[in-house]
Amino acid sequence: MIELILAERCTGCGTCISICPSNVFEPSSGAVPMIVRQEDCQTCFLCELYCETDALYVHPDATGHVPSPDTLTPPGDYRRDSGWGSWLKTPVTATSTGAWAMYSHAQENPLEEQL
């Protein structure tokens, strides 16, 4: 379940509030959103993917609240391994021009690409 929004990293952009499929967050008067329906969290980790500053941490246990230690900082590994957002240009998932060129080729020659 969602366990942590790290205030030092959170920019208050509100993306997690919008993209959470379970509507777990709500805006607060401060910048950092509140986790108001933690038990509704479906532990899909997608909020981590969408958080540009790696401010969120989802614990893999979906059966109940697992308090995170004070020292914990969200690892951002889902975003990194996915090559998402600011990781897009890293070698892990370099896609840019090469991929696009190949895609155009595949469109022109769908059979060749698929065999």
Partner: peptide, 18 residues
């Protein structure tokens, strides 16, 4: 943005969900 596989081919049908 497709990613080429090991053989540098684009697989149009196998996609990442997010």
């Amino acid at each position: 943005a497709y990613e080429p596989d090991d053989d540098n081919r684009i697989r149009l049908n196998a996609l990442r969900g997010p």
